[in-house]
Write a protein that binds this DNA or RNA. Structure first.
Length: 749
DNA sequence: TAAAAAATCGTTTTT
DNA sequence: CGATTTTTTA
C-alpha cells in the first residue's frame, strides 16, 4: 500500500502535489498549457481512493470521450482497473444522458428516448418553419437553430423566450422554439442541449432526487472548466451544494468554445462563487521549448481578460519559430508536406507531425498535397464514422426499433432504399397524422384510412411498419444481435448498395457491416445493456477515429480538435488575415477568443513550430489576396527567426495618415521568398493571368462555348452583377438562358 | 416516381 | 468552387 501512495505522489512538483492532496472543499487548479493537468486530475482521483474514498462517490466530468477514457486508463495504471472503472466518469452529455435514462419518468420521457443530433434537429426545424409558413430558403433554418440552442444554453425555456421576445425575429424564433419543443416531446427525443437542461430540471423536480445525487457524487471533478456553459455550471452547482467538494481544472487562456455557449466567467469568477476556494496555479510547462513557450506567452499577453500567471519552462531554448509565406494555399500545403517528408522517417515518425488550421475547409489543399507526396496522413475529427450517411441510416432504423414515436428516424429511412412512397403520398400521410394528432408511425399503420392514398402506397406503408413490428418482437424476445442483423438485411439497405456496385457503395457496405459487428460485440460484452445505450454512445461520440491517434500518420486537424494534444513538430497553416483571426461578414467576432485559439495552436508544439500563410487563396471561386495575420505581428520577435515580413508593416501601429500622400507609399514586402527548402522543387501549378480578351464583357453577337451545350451565339443579355444572364442560341441545343457567374462561357475567337 | 439538370446557397470551431 | 436544394423532364 505504501508503494501505491509513493507511485501516486512521486514525480509531482510541489504545486502539483498540493493539488493532488487537497481533496476537501472547493479547489480551482489553474493549469497552464503543458503543465501536467491530466496528471494532476488522475493522480488526485487515485489519491482520493487511496485515502479511503469510495470510487463510486467520485464524479469526473470531461468534455470529450477521449479525455474520459484517458483518465480512466491512467487511473487504472496507478491503482487497479476495477477501482478506476468504479469512478463515475464521462462527458457531461453521456453522464447526464445515462442518469436521465434511468430517471426518465420524472421529466415525462420514456427511458427509450432518442437523442437528436444536429442532423435530426435540422430536419425538425425545417419541417416547423415550413409548417409555420416561414421562409424556407436554403440556409434559413440555421439561424433559428442557433438562436434556439443559445436560448437553451442560457436556460431560457420556450415560454421564457416568448415572454422576452420584442422583435419580429425573436417572436418568430419563439414560435419555432415552442413548436420544436413540442415536436421533440412528442417524438420522445432530446437534443444535445436537452441532456444538460433536463438533468437540471430533474434535480429541481424534487428534493429527494437532488439529495440522492448529491450524496452519490460526494466528490466532483471537472476538467476543462473554462469551457463550461451556463447549464453545465448550474448542474455542477446543484450537485455540489451540499458537500462543496468540487475541484475544477482549467486554463482561461485556452477557452475556445464561446460559440457553443461556454462562459469564461465561470472560471474567472470561481473564487467569487466559492469564497472558501483554494487556488493553485500550475505554471511550469513541461512540453515546449523556451522559444515556443516564449512566443506563445508574448501573444497571449495581449489579452486583457485573464487570470494572471507566468508560464515558464526548464526545457532547452530550441529552434526559433519559423514564419513562412507562400504564393497560394496549394504552395503552402505542398511545402508543408515536402518539409515533413524531409524531416520524417529518421529521428521522427510520421505521427510526430501535426498540421493545424482554423476551418475544416482548409484541409482540402493539404490533403491533395499529402497525396502528391504519398505521405501517410489522417484527418482527425473530420467526417466521423458515425456521421456517415449509411451509418446514420442504420442508426435511424435501429432507433425506430426501440422508439416508435421517432418520426424523424422514420422519415430519414422511408425511402432508403426507395419504397415507392414519393413526396405526394408521404405528404398525404403526414397531413393525416397531423390532423389526427397522432404519431406518423401510427398513421403508417392506418394507411388505408388516409384519404386519397393510392393502393400501392398503402401497401408500401403497411409493409414498412409490419417489417419494423416483426423485428421489434424478435429483438425483445430473443437473440438481440441476430434480430438486428436480420432486420437490417430486411430493410433492403444492403441489397441497394450491393446492386449499385460502385466503389463508393462498397465502402458504404463495409461501413454497415462494421457497424453491425460493432453492435453485436457491444451487446455480447454488455448483456445488461440494450440498443439505446449503444445508440447513445454513438450519437455522443464525435469521432470514431480519435482512438487511433497512435497510427503512424501525419495528423491534420482543426485547432479546436488539437486541444489537449501535443506534437514534436507543429505547422499552423493559413496564418492569414481573415482566416485567423477568422472574419465573418468582414468582421472578427471576438478577437480575444481568436487569440486564445492561436495560443492553443502554438502551445501544441514541443520542439518546432512553423506558422505559414498563403498570399492568395480561393474563396467562393474567386482568388483573394491575403496578408499575414495580425497575430504573427504580435509574437515577440526574439522568438521568431524571420520577422521582416509584410504583416509586420501592415499591422504596425499606424502613424497619422495623410490623404493622397503618394510620397509615403507603403514599403513593398521583399519580392523574393526565402525558399522553404532549396532542394524541393516548387509546385508547377501556376495561376496564369486571365487573358485580356476574356475580361471584356460578353455582348450580344459573340460566339461562345459552353462545357455541356457546345457552341452557340449570344442573342440577348439581361441583369447585372452576379445576376447577369445571357441568352444563348446553341447550335445543337437551341436557346438557353444562363447565369454568367455559373455558366462558364468561353468566347470563341 | 426517379433521375438529371440548373439554381442557390454558403465558411468557423463540436458535445 | 462544391455541396445541396429546387426544377425539369423522361
Amino acid at each position: 500500500m505504501q508503494d501505491r501512495l509513493a507511485k501516486i505522489l512521486d514525480g509531482l512538483n510541489e504545486r502539483q502535489r498540493e493539488a493532488v492532496t487537497t481533496i476537501n472543499g472547493p479547489l480551482l487548479v489553474v493549469a497552464g498549457a503543458g503543465s501536467g493537468k491530466t496528471k494532476v486530475l488522475t493522480h488526485r482521483i487515485a489519491y482520493m481512493i487511496e485515502s479511503g474514498i469510495t470510487p463510486w462517490n467520485i464524479l469526473a466530468l470531461t468534455f470529450t470521450n477521449k479525455a474520459a477514457a484517458e483518465m480512466q486508463q491512467r487511473i487504472s495504471s496507478l491503482l487497479t482497473e476495477e477501482e478506476a472503472y468504479q469512478v463515475y466518469s464521462g462527458t457531461f452529455h453521456s453522464v447526464f444522458g445515462r442518469i436521465l435514462r434511468k430517471e426518465a419518468n420524472i421529466i415525462g420521457y420514456s427511458s427509450n428516448y432518442s437523442i437528436y443530433d444536429t442532423d435530426d434537429q435540422e430536419r425538425v426545424v425545417k419541417k416547423i418553419i415550413k409548417d409555420l409558413g416561414f421562409n424556407t430558403n436554403k440556409g434559413s433554418h440555421k439561424p433559428f437553430m442557433h438562436r434556439i440552442s443559445a436560448a437553451k444554453n442560457d436556460l431560457l425555456t420556450a415560454d421564457d423566450y416568448k415572454a422576452e421576445a420584442d422583435t419580429i425575429v425573436k417572436k418568430e424564433t419563439a414560435m419555432v422554439y415552442e413548436a420544436y419543443e413540442k415536436f421533440l416531446k412528442e417524438n420522445d427525443a432530446m437534443d444535445f442541449d436537452d441532456l444538460l437542461i433536463n438533468f437540471i430540471v430533474m434535480l429541481q423536480k424534487d428534493k429527494s432526487i437532488l439529495e440522492k445525487y448529491q450524496n452519490h457524487f460526494r466528490f466532483v471533478l471537472v476538467d476543462e472548466y473554462q469551457d463550461t456553459n451556463k447549464a453545465q455550471y448550474i448542474a455542477i452547482r446543484l450537485l455540489t451544494k451540499a458537500h462543496s467538494n468540487l475541484c475544477v481544472v482549467g486554463d482561461d487562456a485556452q477557452s475556445i468554445y464561446k460559440w457553443r455557449g461556454a462562459d469564461i466567467r465561470n472560471i474567472l469568477d470561481f473564487q467569487k462563487d466559492n469564497p472558501a476556494a483554494k487556488i493553485i496555479r500550475l505554471e511550469q510547462n513541461y512540453r515546449s521549448t523556451k522559444n515556443i513557450l516564449g512566443g506563445a506567452n508574448s501573444l497571449i499577453a495581449k489579452n486583457k481578460e485573464q487570470i494572471p500567471k507566468k508560464l515558464f519552462t526548464e526545457n532547452p531554448q530550441g529552434d526559433k519559430i519559423d514564419i513562412l509565406k507562400f504564393e497560394n494555399d496549394n504552395q503552402e500545403a505542398f511545402n508543408i508536406a515536402a518539409t515533413i517528408k524531409t524531416k520524417g522517417g529518421y529521428k521522427y515518425t510520421w505521427k510526430d507531425f501535426a498540421v493545424l488550421y482554423r476551418t475544416n475547409a482548409q484541409s482540402r489543399s493539404l490533403e491533395s498535397a499529402f497525396r502528391k507526396h504519398s505521405l501517410p496522413y489522417q484527418i482527425i475529427g473530420g467526417m466521423s464514422f458515425y456521421k456517415r450517411k449509411e451509418v446514420k441510416d442504420v442508426a435511424a432504423y435501429l432507433r425506430l426499433l426501440v422508439n416508435q414515436s421517432d418520426s424523424i428516424a422514420l422519415m430519414r429511412v422511408i425511402n432508403e432504399p426507395p419504397r415507392g412512397l414519393g413526396t405526394i403520398s408521404l405528404t398525404k400521410i403526414i397531413n393525416y397524422a397531423t390532423r389526427n394528432g397522432e404519431p406518423i408511425v401510427t398513421a403508417f399503420r392506418n394507411a388505408e384510412n388516409v384519404p386519397g392514398l393510392q393502393k400501392r402506397a398503402v401497401n408500401a406503408a403497411t409493409k414498412f411498419v409490419n417489417m419494423i413490428d416483426t423485428f421489434r418482437e424478435k429483438y425483445y424476445s430473443g437473440d438481440k444481435g441476430l434480430a438486428i442483423e436480420q432486420y437490417i438485411e430486411a430493410t433492403g439497405l444492403i441489397e441497394m448498395y450491393q446492386s449499385l456496385g460502385t466503389e463508393e457503395a462498397e465502402d458504404r457496405l463495409n461501413n454497415i457491416n462494421e457497424l453491425l459487428s460493432d453492435i453485436v460485440t457491444f451487446l455480447t460484452n454488455n448483456p445488461e445493456y440494450g440498443l439505446h445505450e449503444y445508440l447513445q454512445t454513438i450519437s455522443l461520440s464525435s469521432d470514431f477515429e480519435e482512438t487511433d491517434m497512435n497510427k503512424d500518420c501525419v495528423k491534420l486537424m482543426t485547432i479546436h480538435a488539437a486541444k489537449g494534444l501535443e506534437f514534436p513538430y507543429v505547422f499552423v497553416a493559413g496564418m492569414a488575415e481573415g482566416l485567423l483571426p477568422l472574419e465573418r461578414n468582414g468582421a472578427v467576432e471576438d478577437l480575444e477568443e481568436e487569440r486564445r485559439l492561436m495560443y492553443v495552436a502554438m502551445t501544441r508544439a514541443m520542439e518546432k513550430l512553423y506558422l505559414t500563410y498563403p498570399a492568395q487563396r480561393y474563396s467562393f471561386g474567386d482568388i483573394k489576396s491575403l496578408f499575414g495575420s495580425l497575430f504573427l505581428s504580435e509574437i515577440q520577435t526574439d522568438f521568431v527567426r524571420n520577422n521582416n515580413e509584410d504583416f509586420m508593416i501592415r499591422h504596425k501601429p499606424q502613424p497619422p495618415k495623410f490623404p493622397n500622400n503618394f510620397s509615403k507609399r507603403r514599403p513593398r514586402p521583399k519580392p523574393k521568398e526565402r525558399p522553404f527548402f532549396d532542394d524541393i522543387p516548387q509546385q508547377e501549378e501556376s495561376y496564369s493571368q486571365i487573358p485580356e480578351d476574356d475580361r471584356t464583357p460578353l455582348k450580344v453577337g459573340d460566339r461562345v462555348h459552353h462545357s455541356k451545350f457546345g457552341e452557340g451565339k449570344i442573342t440577348g443579355m439581361s441583369g447585372a452583377g452576379n445576376m447577369q444572364k445571357a441568352t444563348v442560341n446553341f447550335d445543337n441545343f437551341g436557346k438557353k438562358s444562363l447565369m454568367l457567374q455559373f455558366a462558364k462561357l468561353v468566347r470563341l475567337g
